[in-house]
Amino acid sequence: MNPTPPTPPKPTPTPKPTPTHAHTPTHAQTPTPTHTPTHPLRVAVIGYGLAGSVFHAPLVAATDGLVLDTVVTSDPGRQAQAREAYPDVRITASPEDVWARDPEAAVDLVVIASPNKTHVPLATAALNAGIPVVVDKPLAATAAEARELAELADRTGTFLSVFQNRRWDNDFLTLRRLLSAGELGDVQRFESRFERWRPQLKGGWRESGAPEEIGGLLYDLGSHVVDQALVLFGPAVRVYAETDVRRPGAETDDDTFIAITHANGVRSHLYVSATTAQLGPRFRVLGSRAGYVKYGLDPQEAALREGHRPGGDGTPWGEEPEHMWGRLGSGESPLTGGGTPVPTQPGDYPAYYAAVAAALRGGGQAPVTAHEAAQCLAVLEAARVSSRDGVTVDL
């Protein structure tokens, strides 16, 4: 019942390319090379908060064939932080400065890591300027907006991809391997939890209840768990959800459950929460032959937050200790040692930007497309309706 998913692209050493905007992608945004590569592609990162400083800038800087050229932020403190981390980077306060550059100084890729409400207007401006774009998730507030961006990218022949880094989590890669090998038999239920214990509000736009901010966990962590479920088990045909506001003073959902029925019959039960005092398993996958249970989050985000970089100190990237491995088996609890330990495949966030670089050089498709993002957003929209109206939504 579960399809065999394709293996995510892996980074491979490649020659350094010449900057160019002469990309002619297909419907899946696959650029056609028009030159012989000799120089790295120059990248501008718009936004230097959590997404820009922890994820995008470090991963871009660590990718062969890419160079971090510009950071766009109007915040003086973040400008200083970027200069300290990347002394040679250009700093500008406005995205318009990127669109207006002379051709010899133009960037070859824009990464939009700014607040959610800016994703659509900034992506639209970049695509209209003919500049390839990576947009942090969620791409937009609605599936319709995501499809419009996909159509704009197709019309302008400009590369567009969405940053869904959790496709390269260690547990997700391991589960894909187990499914490909048929270790679980036919999957019947997929349980995925992205839970945290954060009883105190942090503030900021992510916790705002203003609709234009696109805040709350449904669109934040929900974007990850829904995308993973769709990649593993295919299209959704039915959605049910419960979204709750638990913490005093909270304005938007901080404890959410989503149930998806996939076209192939698999049921996905997805939990995202900031109010979980006792964390459940990250994955619990039940099949006709065996089950797989895995606790703990992928270590790459924590490593990036602590200042570690892929390949920076020569240590293996994305690996976790043996005691964190998941277990595969039947009829026994993994908490009491039941089942067989399954070595966790190392996480590989660097693979995303390696695939982007390869696509811009004409060597492959965008690692995550806007059309895929639209499918994820359709589920998130259905979940919002389901919770609001107390109904199950058919897609």
Rank of each mutant, 00 (worst) to 15 (best):
A290G: 13
A263V: 08
E213Y: 03
A277M: 08
G222A: 00
G209K: 09
Q278A: 15
P211Q: 10
G280W: 08
S288V: 10
R247E: 06
A274S: 14
F257G: 10
L286D: 11
V266Q: 04
G291N: 06
E212P: 09
Q278V: 13
G287K: 02
R267D: 08
G265V: 02
E242Y: 01
D227P: 01
T256C: 07
I258F: 03
V237W: 11
R289W: 05
T252C: 12
G287E: 09
T276P: 10
E242G: 09
V285K: 00
N264A: 10
P248E: 09
S268K: 03
T276R: 15
G234R: 08
T276M: 14
D220I: 08
A274T: 13
R284D: 05
G249L: 04
K294T: 06
F257P: 00
A236H: 13
A263S: 15
P211S: 04
I258P: 10
V237C: 11
L221R: 12
Y292F: 15
L279C: 05
D255T: 04
L286A: 08
H269E: 14
V225W: 01
G222H: 02
K294I: 00
P248F: 13
P281L: 03
L218F: 01
T261A: 14
L221P: 00
T276C: 06
V272I: 11
A210H: 12
T275P: 04
V237S: 13
L270C: 06
S273R: 02
L217D: 05
E213V: 05
V285Y: 03
L218C: 03
H262A: 04
V225I: 15
E212L: 02
F233M: 00
P248Y: 08
G216M: 01
G209C: 02
G209Q: 10
P281K: 00
T256N: 06
L217H: 12
Y219K: 04
E251D: 06
Y240K: 11
G265F: 12
G209R: 09
T252P: 04
V293C: 06
P211D: 11
Y292M: 09
S223M: 04
L218V: 10
R247Q: 05
V266I: 05
D255E: 06
G291I: 06
D220Q: 07
V293L: 07
D220K: 04
E242P: 04
R267G: 03
H269Y: 15
P281R: 09
L232Y: 08
S223E: 01
A263T: 13
D255F: 14
A236G: 13
V293H: 13
Y271E: 01
H262E: 07
V231H: 11
G222M: 02
V231W: 15
Q228N: 13
E213P: 02
A236K: 01
L230P: 05
L218T: 11
V293T: 14
L286S: 07
V239C: 00
D220E: 01
P281C: 11
G280P: 07
A259L: 11
T276Y: 07
R247K: 14
G280Y: 14
A241F: 11
A229D: 02
G234V: 06
A274W: 15
R267W: 06
P235E: 02
A250H: 03
A277F: 12
R282E: 07
P281D: 14
D220M: 10
G234E: 11
